[in-house]
C-alpha cells in the first residue's frame, strides 16, 4: 500500500495506523496523529484502517512561540 507519511511517500504492508507507527519506529513516543487532515485519536489507532493513498501526519511537541 502506498501512503504519505509526514509529506513523504512510503510503501507499507501494515493495515492499521497502530501497526504503521510500530513499523516506523515510533514505539511509545508521545505523538498525535491525523489521517487525511483529521485527528486520529490515540485510542483508536488500532482500529484505524489505512487505505491506499492516505496521508498520515505524526506530530510531537516542539519549540514554539
Amino acid at each position: 500500500m502506498n501512503l504519505t507519511l509526514n509529506g513523504e511517500a512510503i510503501i507499507t504492508k501494515t493495515s492499521t495506523l497502530a501497526e504503521l507507527l510500530d513499523e516506523q519506529g515510533y514505539g511509545d513516543a508521545k505523538v498525535a496523529t491525523a489521517v487525511n487532515g483529521t485527528l486520529a485519536p490515540a485510542s483508536f489507532r488500532g482500529a484505524t484502517e489505512l487505505t491506499d493513498g492516505d496521508a498520515i501526519e505524526v506530530v510531537a511537541p516542539m519549540q514554539g512561540g
Binding site: 509526514n6 509529506g7 507507527l21 516506523q24 519506529g25 515510533y26 513516543a29 508521545k30 505523538v31 498525535a32 501526519e57 505524526v58 506530530v59 510531537a60 511537541p61 516542539m62 519549540q63 514554539g64 512561540g65
Partner: peptide
C-alpha cells in the same frame, strides 16, 4: 509557556527530548 507541534520522525524523535525538558 507556549509550545508547538511539528512532524516527528520515527528515527530521530526530536520532539520527545524537547518534551522531557518542558
Amino acid at each position: 509557556v507556549t509550545v508547538s507541534l511539528r512532524r516527528e520522525s520515527g528515527k530521530e524523535q526530536a520532539g520527545q527530548n524537547f518534551w522531557s525538558y518542558i
